[in-house]
Computed example of a mutant assay.
Amino acid sequence: MADGKILGIQKLGFQWQAEDPFLVTMYHKDHYPAGNEEQGVDPALLAGRNIGQDFEGRDGFRMYHGESVPGFPAHPHKGFETVTVVLEGAVDHFDSKGSYGRYGNGDVQWLTTGSGCQHTEMFPLVNSDKPNPLELFQIWLNLPAKSKSAVPDYKMLWAEDIPVIEQKAANGKTTTVRLVAGKVNGVESLEPNSASWAHDKENHVGIMHIRMEPGAVFTLPAVSKTLNRNLYFYEGDAIQINHETILTSHRVKLAGDQEVEITNGAKESFLLLLEGEPMNEPVAQYGPFVMNSKVEIQAAFEEFQRNQFGGWQWGRHDPVNERNAGRFAHHWDGRVEKR
């Protein structure tokens, strides 16, 4: 760390610590079995689990807050954004504005919760004849004070449209970057929601999923002295950053104003890069609400108790789409996207 390029190293836990403008990142990797008629788990496999609060990882999977279908039934959010990056598996979305859909296998949902909404994130087991593996990140990105009252909305970044950049090192080994937000080698990402901190390019928000072949070398450019840059090394064996060896399952805080070279070890590695200029605003967070003060948090709870952020029209708290629905998004304004 003497060269000032590595500013800190931290072991990864269930929730990955983040820095302004990011709040936290959750990484989910579950090996779900074949689904039953309801796209859920066979009840015989649920015996002994703490249904409704199942985070144990028993038998290789978690039900989370789901009862028959794993996932996160209807719950509220206010004052920030969720960026859900699905590497494998399916996610069903329903929200209190009337939108619904299914995405997965490389798709990204960019949800601005703004002034408040309820939504679901259920993990339907669409395969009835084979396992249903799931792997995703959910990244919480703060909203600046001026955008916390934005109208809730979401945008789909479909897998086919997300830029993928391949960079070969001198030894011929390749690094592949899926660019969710930001810029790499002159290639820009798709545009996020208009209320997002990432919408202003001067905020240098970057969200990148990185795959490195054994022996591959990848260089992060210098951006700015104020940039918060964090590299999450979550799968592989070891990487080297400026001659310092980093083992897997660690977060590395890097200087934002210096070029940083990453050299992979003997195994294929996977990393997540989150970077951006800080908002430098006070953060008050309680559960699903992120505001700028405790008074605003209290007001958010009172508002939710009063109007339920528009109520819930879906009949059940854990709805799922039809098994063969495919990937689609039906927006509250009537727009329909199908993939």
Rank of each mutant, 00 (worst) to 15 (best):
D3S: 14
D3F: 06
G4M: 12
I6F: 15
G8C: 14
Q10N: 15
L12G: 02
F14Y: 13
Q15D: 08
A18K: 01
D20W: 11
M26H: 00
Y27H: 11
P33S: 14
V41E: 13
A44K: 14
L46R: 12
A47Q: 15
G52H: 08
G52D: 03
Q53V: 13
R62E: 11
R62N: 07
V69A: 04
V69W: 01
F72N: 13
F72M: 14
H75E: 13
P76N: 08
P76C: 11
H77Q: 12
K78A: 03
V86P: 02
L87K: 09
E88Q: 15
A90H: 15
F94I: 10
F94V: 01
F94S: 00
S96G: 12
Y100R: 14
Y100C: 10
Y100H: 15
R102L: 11
R102T: 06
G104I: 07
N105F: 02
N105A: 04
Q109R: 07
W110H: 02
T113E: 00
G114K: 01
S115V: 11
S115Q: 01
C117E: 00
M122Q: 05
F123I: 10
V126T: 11
S128E: 15
S128I: 04
P131D: 13
N132G: 05
L134G: 03
P144T: 13
A150Q: 04
P152N: 02
D153S: 15
Y154P: 07
M156L: 15
P163T: 02
P163Q: 03
V164N: 06
I165N: 03
E166F: 02
Q167Y: 06
A169V: 01
A169D: 13
A169K: 07
N171T: 05
T176P: 09
T176Q: 13
L179A: 05
P192E: 11
P192G: 02
A195G: 13
A195E: 10
H199K: 14
H199V: 08
H199I: 08
D200F: 11
N203W: 12
N203T: 14
G206V: 10
M208N: 04
H209F: 07
H209E: 09
M212Q: 15
E213Q: 15
A216H: 00
A216E: 00
V217G: 04
V217H: 06
T219P: 09
T219V: 03
S224Q: 12
K225H: 12
N228F: 06
N228W: 05
Y232A: 04
Y232T: 03
F233S: 04
D237T: 12
A238K: 10
I239M: 11
E244A: 07
I246A: 00
I246F: 11
I246M: 06
T248P: 06
S249L: 15
R251D: 04
V252C: 05
A255F: 09
D257W: 10
E259Y: 10
E259W: 07
E261H: 05
N264W: 12
G265R: 01
E268Y: 02
S269F: 03
S269I: 07
L272C: 04
E277I: 03
E277D: 11
V283K: 04
A284N: 09
A284D: 04
P288M: 08
P288D: 08
N292L: 08
S293R: 00
K294V: 09
E296V: 09
F301S: 04
F304V: 00
F304N: 06
Q305R: 08
Q308P: 03
F309W: 01
W312R: 06
W314H: 07
A325D: 04
F328A: 03
A329G: 03
D333I: 05
R335M: 05
V336D: 09
